[in-house]
Design a protein around this nucleic acid. Structure first.
Lengths: 142, 142
DNA sequence: GCTATACCCTAGCGTATTAGTAGAGATTAA
DNA sequence: TTAATCTCTACTAATACGCTAGGGTATAGC
């Protein structure tokens, strides 16, 4: 299960992409449109900003807008930012590899072999599907 | 990420399958072989027993052994038993569907569409790979 | 029978994570 | 000046995770 926060982040990006590139939305709009608690969304958008997905304008007629093109924002990137590794086991993570304490010889760990295939399958989807694909309902269709 | 407990459960089943069908192992053996805390493993084996994956003999020369054939124990089944739904979103779970609070029209939820594909990809692996496959290093190979 | 060795069962516990809330501050347009 | 906006830090209640503790119950072998 992905976290609620990651889901909110993706929805927020979808909202911004729908608005059109360069168009800004205020937090309140996104929050209402997507039924996301406003103060929580604030934090999420800040994280997305720090990571370079969106940018913001402060003050009276401020708001958020996409910084990167919707075609260039992959679901996998957002998930890794918000939830951390996508991998089902620490010993299979690209961004945060960690040896399993209870695994002596990793190369012939049966469990790892199976989840390696799970990891590849999910990455295949998450790292090839962009926000633009999601809007179009397409993207690396099987 | 799958839980440590689920990983232990799978490893325990792999150990029992390696021992051979009908062969019993005591908790201590499995615990040592797989570096699983013994008391924790007790609980896990008990759950696996209640779910019908293994059976046990009590008393002096007791132990656990597989009840179902290794070919018939899919990774997905074990994961669902120990960790709950395999799906990345509650609204995509087969065993515990729940509508997302923040989702008005599920059928055109962009996020859901993408994760539907993730769900199908992971199920494809988890529900087609058995403990026997894991031991053989094969099983629904791509 | 007795006892040692297994499995069976329930409860609890420390830590971390999740899903937010709260509230003050900084910036800018009108 | 002020009202609307983003920025930042801190806190919190609830839950889950990864165990540990300590009994209880059955059975084989002496």
């Amino acid at each position: 299960m992905i976290s609620q926060k990651a889901k909110y982040a993706l929805r927020a990006l979808v909202s911004l992409a729908k608005a059109g590139q360069g168009k800004t939305m205020v937090i309140g709009e996104i929050s209402q449109q997507q039924a996301i608690p406003k103060k929580f969304l604030e934090q999420i958008l800040l994280e997305l900003k720090r990571a370079g997905f969106v940018t913001s304008l402060r003050g009276r007629s401020g708001g958020y807008c996409l910084l990167r093109a919707p075609e260039d924002i992959r679901f996998g990137e957002v998930l890794r930012l918000i939830d951390g590794p996508v991998a089902p086991l620490p010993c299979l993570s690209l961004i945060a590899y960690r040896k399993c304490d209870d695994c002596s010889n990793e190369t012939n760990c049966e469990v790892r072999h199976v989840f390696m295939r799970v990891a590849m399958a999910t990455r295949q989807v998450l790292d090839s599907t962009s926000v633009a694909d999601a809007l179009a309902g397409t993207g690396a269709e099987l």
